[in-house]
Write a protein that binds this DNA or RNA. Structure first.
Lengths: 124, 124
DNA sequence: TGAATATATGAGCATGCATTCATATACTAG
DNA sequence: CTAGTATATGAATGCATGCTCATATATTCA
């Protein structure tokens, strides 16, 4: 058992070689944060429902609000989040703003996540 | 322009047919919540780093703590979250508990998310 | 048995976030 | 220009969550 060489914590090491290997493999802080931010965008039921509603095609804000049964303001705030992460696209037509799915990766993430969720039989 | 038929909000509809279609396509509340919970598990830099560290193979709690440079308590709390969502597996050997990746969907989600993040050139 | 070590966990705290409310902006119609 | 409508957004609020600290549990070793 080897004493930790990190000054950040006083934890002991079980397998120093594995730790070094893991440190090399592990995502750096910045990349981990950006990846976490992406998943964070999908980590809310309202945003998930918005994205699944946009599957049928572009929808304007008020139709999205009606579809979800939520206020225009709440939907608009969430669309801002989705837009900032590049998951939805805007198209303005007069005073109506249409939103649609922007990223092809989203569909992959979405279906893969759904597959995971639907294969879970023991979830509460 | 048709007045909304939902009593939940007083929003007007632009395209009632699209709204009905979107309502049929949209994930139901329960499924959306479970999907959001899954993504929530990946929506934290610490958990992302833990999962990417476990890519090299199973690691015990204190080696994970050393790898991330964080306290044993913080890591243990996060591992609990990951375990409850079925993303990591436990193996106890004496007083040491080894964790490893549990779900094959995780790797898919992970790499797809990474691909998204790495193709973004305009992110801050 | 008793000391040491690895892990788990409850409480407390600080921060983040989803919604509401009020209001601002932008466009259209008259 | 004025009224009306669609959307955006800042402030406030209630709730969730990540970390620390202290401590409990479990296992090993002497």
């Amino acid at each position: 058992m080897i004493t930790g060489e990190l000054d950040l914590c006083e934890v002991n090491l079980i397998n120093a070689a594995m730790v070094r290997q893991a440190q090399g493999q592990m995502l750096d802080e910045a990349t981990a944060t950006r990846l976490a931010d992406l998943f964070q965008a999908l980590a809310d039921p309202t945003r998930v429902r918005i994205l699944s509603a946009l599957w049928v095609g572009e929808l304007c804000v008020c139709d999205l609000a009606a579809t979800l049964g939520m206020s225009q303001s709440a939907i608009s705030h969430q669309l801002r989040t989705l837009r900032q992460l590049g998951l939805v696209r805007r198209r303005k037509d007069g005073q109506v703003v249409y939103y649609s799915l922007d990223d092809e990766h989203v569909s992959g993430l979405f279906s893969q996540g759904l597959e995971h969720v639907r294969h879970q039989t023991d979830m509460p």
